[in-house]
């Protein structure tokens, strides 16, 4: 069951590259949060009740509801609907992300031999999510998309830490929460003001500082 969930999670990243609608990205963020929540629940046996509640709250409350809702609100308010003129054409990025996804499977086959107590499929998929999140940051121009890409990376890391699971100390969970905090912080503080300071909310506008 965990494996199926992990694969679905990986597949959502393909949809990200197939669409250019920012609201589409946000729906995927919410979906990923829900899937991570389900993963946490299925892994219940290996964790204490307290940890399960904490991680579950993090996945459902923060990742599936709070962050997408805040972003949705801001996107609506600022009327940024689409990612236009990406640095990399849509088609290529879709192919690239498919390759990354396939690469994740290769890693998982090979990770099976690597260490005991590892969920290989989740491990491989998490790596592919992290890589494609970084790709999104690199290939798109809107600030909102950059933030979303960062959150994808974070979701990948969350899955990674779940897959390594069993003996990971509590401090790791703490780290994940701190990351989510960063993303929200980024957004609330900046996009509000960046919108006012710059006419365009594209990263292109951030090019005054250079040599």
């Amino acid at each position: 069951m965990t494996d199926i969930l992990a694969v679905i999670l990986g597949t959502t990243m393909l949809y990200v590259y197939a669409t250019s609608r920012i609201e589409g990205y946000l729906k995927i963020l919410a979906l990923q949060g829900a899937l991570l929540f389900a993963l946490v629940l299925f892994d219940f046996a290996s964790r204490s009740v307290f940890e399960t509640v904490f991680l579950g709250a993090e996945a459902l409350g923060v990742k599936a509801i709070a962050i997408p809702a805040i972003l949705f609100n801001l996107v609506r308010k600022n009327e940024v609907r689409r990612e236009i003129e990406p640095s990399l054409p849509q088609f290529f990025s879709l192919i690239l992300s498919s390759l990354v996804f396939a690469f994740g499977f290769i890693i998982s086959f090979w990770a099976r031999r690597l260490a005991a107590g590892l969920a290989p499929l989740a491990f491989g998929v998490s790596i592919s999510i992290i890589v494609s999140g970084l790709l999104l940051v690199m290939s798109r121009k809107k600030i909102v998309t950059h933030i979303i890409g960062y959150i994808f990376v974070e979701n990948g890391i969350f899955l990674l830490s779940l897959s390594v699971a069993s003996e990971m100390p509590f401090i790791v969970n703490l780290g994940v929460l701190l990351d989510a905090f960063t993303a929200v912080y980024l957004f609330v503080v900046f996009s509000n003001r960046i919108q006012r300071a710059y006419d365009e909310d594209r990263i292109n506008a951030l090019q005054n500082l250079k040599d």
Binding site: V137, V153, I157, G175, D179, L206, L209
Partner: peptide, 23 residues
């Protein structure tokens, strides 16, 4: 504003990568 944005965004990605190292 631009400087802070670059600082936080680039560093937080760096920090995320080092977290993968920890895992």
């Amino acid at each position: 504003l631009e400087a802070v944005w670059k600082y936080i965004f680039i560093c937080s990605i760096g920090v995320a990568l080092s977290f993968i190292g920890v895992i």
